[in-house]
Amino acid sequence: MRDAAIEAFAAQGFDVSLRAIAARAGVTAGLVRHHFGSKEALRAECDATVLERYRRMKEDSLEASPQQVFNHLPSSREGGVLILYILRSVRDGAQAGTQFTEQLIEEALNLLDRSVQRGLIVPSRNEPARARFLVLQSLGALVLHFALNPPQDPEDFATVMQEYYAQVALPTLELFSEGLFTDPAYLNEYLAAGTADVPPAGSAGTAESR
């Protein structure tokens, strides 16, 4: 039932009815209510599961070779479910969506710390700020991508993943691997101005972070 709910939320949004979720799972709506108690409790469990699967997918990619990653990721049905679920959570804008975003940032910080320790990426002068920036940039790109290119069939999770991957993979890898500026003049000037010690970022839903 939980996996059916995750897919229903991903494909149709959080307004989808318990009856529709139950039909997808092949059970009655009463059984869904009996098992989870409420739709809010069901969503909370789905959020936790999606975050865990997203974290595991990221960690697995660290352990795999680049060839293994690219053999699997572009056509990953699970990847399509995850990105659509995350999209719905961000666009939802309610407290649950805000909390979900903050949890994504926390997971990103943990992953970045591990990647730095393993020598996979360079360290940052402000790791929490970098984690927040990367997540918010990624989520913003995700929202805009699907606003401009809504999937023809949100239920076809593998195709959703393939089309999104085709748009973002090359520019993301170029930017992360090769950088953007040809010299560090702007960074050096910023550091010399003494403004690098910025205060901690506010939560994703506060005015500080907007």
Rank of each mutant, 00 (worst) to 15 (best):
residue 167 Q to M: 15
residue 149 N to C: 04
residue 172 T to W: 09
residue 63 E to R: 12
residue 72 H to F: 15
residue 210 R to F: 10
residue 109 L to T: 11
residue 22 A to S: 00
residue 36 F to C: 04
residue 194 G to A: 04
residue 204 A to M: 00
residue 103 Q to T: 07
residue 12 Q to E: 10
residue 7 E to Y: 06
residue 46 C to S: 03
residue 176 F to N: 14
residue 98 T to S: 15
residue 66 P to D: 08
residue 143 V to L: 05
residue 135 V to Y: 06
residue 64 A to Q: 07
residue 148 L to M: 14
residue 43 R to S: 06
residue 73 L to N: 01
residue 39 K to H: 06
residue 30 G to F: 01
residue 169 A to W: 15
residue 172 T to R: 01
residue 134 L to P: 02
residue 48 A to T: 01
residue 150 P to G: 10
residue 203 S to L: 03
residue 55 R to F: 05
residue 26 G to L: 09
residue 159 T to C: 05
residue 201 A to Y: 09
residue 123 P to I: 02
residue 196 A to N: 12
residue 83 I to D: 08
residue 185 A to Q: 14
residue 98 T to G: 13
residue 208 E to G: 01
residue 102 E to P: 07
residue 104 L to W: 12
residue 85 Y to R: 07
residue 130 R to V: 10
residue 105 I to M: 06
residue 168 V to W: 13
residue 11 A to G: 11
residue 8 A to H: 11
residue 62 L to E: 05
residue 174 E to W: 15
residue 187 L to Q: 14
residue 75 S to T: 15
residue 75 S to K: 13
residue 57 M to Q: 14
residue 102 E to A: 03
residue 20 A to I: 08
residue 157 F to P: 01
residue 67 Q to D: 13
residue 169 A to S: 12
residue 116 V to F: 01
residue 7 E to A: 13
residue 123 P to D: 00
residue 7 E to H: 08
residue 54 Y to V: 01
